[in-house]
Amino acid sequence: MEFYWESTVIAIVAFILLYMLLSKYAFGPLFAVMEQRRQLVKDEIANAEASRKQAEQQLNEQKLALQEARKEAFEIIEQAKRSSAKQADDILDAAKQESVRLKEEAVKDIENEKNKAISALRSQVSGMSVMIASKIIEKQIDEKSQEQLVDQYLKQVGNKS
């Protein structure tokens, strides 16, 4: 077996050359890409975390808004209920008052009519009775006693009415 020292030297040179070439043209770019990917993954994770937080926050906001809207709707309904009840009461009151007023008016009218009728009747009755009485006792009494008699009768009629 022979030893060739040239082999050793060439092996050393070849290995160092290979190391340099690989470092420059193969591993350098590869490591860069791997580092880039690592960075990318890191960024993506951070992004995902951020968007998750954002989504959570938005969800909470929406929940709150929904609650608010519900409350508002409830209030509106309540108010409507209240106002409608009040309106009904008002209408009822107004109707009652109107009816009372109408009734009173009617009673008043009736009273008036009655009084009118009574007074008309009285004047007529007095005239008629004068006529009747004058016809009956025309010749029996003089003017003076006739007057007295008429008054007496009238008083009697008036008391009876």
């Binding site: 030893f3 082999s7 050793t8 030297v9 060439i10 092996a11 050393i12 290995f15 160092i16």
Partner: peptide, 11 residues
């Protein structure tokens, strides 16, 4: 070849 492996070892 032992001379080659020796080269690597020397490096």
């Amino acid at each position: 070849d032992i001379m080659v492996t020796l080269g690597l070892a020397v490096v």
